[in-house]
C-alpha cells in the first residue's frame, strides 16, 4: 500500500511540473528560451485564485464549476500576459532573452506576492476560495472507481487537472511531431532564417508559441495554489511557487524538448520530491535528500551536452533572436 500511496503522491506533485514543462517546451520549440516560468507561475497562481475568489464573493449563488473555469481562464490569461511582455521585448524589441526572462521572473514573483497579500488584506487577512471549489480542485476524478480496486485507485484517484495535463502532453506530442503547424514551429526553432525563407511567419509563430506556452505554465501555478496536498490549498501562501518554475525549465532539458518525455520526466521529479516522506533513508539527512532533483538535473545537463544524438538536441536557434535584416 505504501508503494501505491507513494505513486499517487508522486503523480500529484508532478502535475504542476508537467504543466510548467509542457508550456516551456512549446515556448522553446519556437527558439525562445523564456526563463520567466517561475514568474509566470506566480502570475497564473494569483490570477486563478483571485478570479475564483472574486467570483465567489461577488456572486450570490456561486456555482462550483463556473468558479473552477474562471480560475483556469484567469490563470492562463494572466500568465500568457506575462509571456506577451516577454515576447514584445525579445521578438519585436530584440532584447536579450536571458535577461528578459529573469526580469519576468522578478516581476512575476513580485506580482504574485504583491496581489496575493493585497487580496488577503482586503479579505481581512485570509482570502480563501469556498470549500466546494477546493474540493473540486482536489477530489479524485471518480471516488467510486478509486476505492474499488488497486487498479482503480492507481488510475482514478487524481484530480481532474492531472488528466488535463496528461491529455495536453499527448496532444502536444501529436501537434509537434505530426501536424503541419507543429512541424513549422519546429522549423522556426531550428533555423529562423530557413523557416522565414520557406514562407513561415516566424514572428507570428514565436509570439503564439511563447504566449500559449506561458499560459500553460500559468496553469501549473494555479495548481500549486489550489492543491492542498502540500498545505492548505485555495489560499495565497507567500512565495508559494518556490522554485517549481525553475525546476520546470530544467525538466524541459531532462525531457529533451519532447512533450511525451515530459510526462516521465516530471513524474521522476515528483517522485524525488516526495520520496523522503515514504522512503526515509536513515543515513541521508532531509536537506540532502531535497537536493537530489537538482543534482539529477545537473547530471542530465552534462550527459545531454556530452552526447550528440540528433533527435535529442535542443532547438538549434534556442536563445537566439531573429533579425531578418541581419541575415
Amino acid at each position: 500500500m505504501n508503494i501505491l500511496n507513494f505513486f499517487i503522491a508522486s503523480v500529484l506533485s508532478a502535475c504542476p511540473l508537467l504543466f510548467g514543462t509542457l508550456g516551456e517546451t512549446l515556448t522553446e520549440r519556437s527558439g525562445n528560451l523564456n526563463l520567466g516560468v517561475e514568474g509566470m507561475m506566480f502570475m497564473g497562481g494569483i490570477a486563478g485564485l483571485a478570479g475564483s475568489y472574486y467570483y465567489e464573493t461577488l456572486s450570490e449563488n456561486p456555482v462550483v464549476w463556473v468558479s473552477v473555469v474562471i480560475a483556469i481562464v484567469c490563470s492562463f490569461l494572466c500568465a500568457a500576459f506575462g509571456a506577451l511582455i516577454y515576447s514584445v521585448l525579445t521578438i519585436t524589441f530584440r532584447a536579450n532573452q536571458n535577461v528578459t526572462g529573469l526580469a519576468l521572473t522578478i516581476f512575476g514573483t513580485g506580482f504574485g506576492n504583491f496581489f496575493g497579500e493585497l487580496l488577503s488584506n482586503s479579505a481581512g487577512g485570509y482570502a480563501a476560495v469556498g470549500n466546494a471549489t477546493k474540493v473540486a480542485f482536489n477530489a479524485p476524478i471518480s471516488a467510486t472507481l478509486a476505492s474499488s480496486s488497486v487498479v482503480g485507485k492507481l488510475l482514478f484517484s487524481y484530480n481532474f487537472l492531472v488528466y488535463i495535463a496528461l491529455a495536453l502532453a499527448l496532444f502536444l506530442t501529436y501537434f509537434i511531431n505530426h501536424t503541419r503547424t507543429g512541424l513549422n514551429l519546429w522549423a522556426v526553432g531550428e533555423r529562423h532564417a530557413a523557416a522565414d525563407a520557406a514562407g513561415i511567419n516566424v514572428t507570428r509563430y514565436k509570439y503564439l508559441a511563447t504566449c500559449i506556452g506561458g499560459g500553460i505554465t500559468g496553469l501549473g501555478g494555479m495548481y500549486i495554489v489550489m492543491n492542498s496536498a502540500s498545505g492548505v490549498g485555495g489560499v495565497w501562501v507567500h512565495n508559494c511557487i518556490s522554485g517549481y518554475g525553475w525546476l520546470s525549465v530544467a525538466l524541459v532539458i531532462f525531457a529533451m524538448w519532447h512533450p511525451s518525455r515530459a510526462i516521465f520526466a516530471s513524474f521522476v521529479f515528483g517522485a524525488l520530491s516526495v520520496a523522503r516522506f515514504y522512503f526515509p533513508v536513515s543515513f541521508l539527512p532531509d536537506a540532502i535528500y531535497e537536493v537530489v532533483p537538482y543534482i539529477a538535473t545537473i547530471v542530465v545537463l552534462i550527459s545531454v551536452s556530452m552526447r550528440s544524438r540528433r533527435r535529442l538536441q535542443p532547438p538549434a536557434s534556442l536563445g537566439l533572436a531573429y533579425f531578418r535584416e541581419e541575415r
Binding site: T109, G110, N113
Partner: peptide
Amino acid sequence: SASSVLIGL
C-alpha cells in the same frame, strides 16, 4: 513585494 514589481517594470 511592490519593490519587485517596480524593479521588474
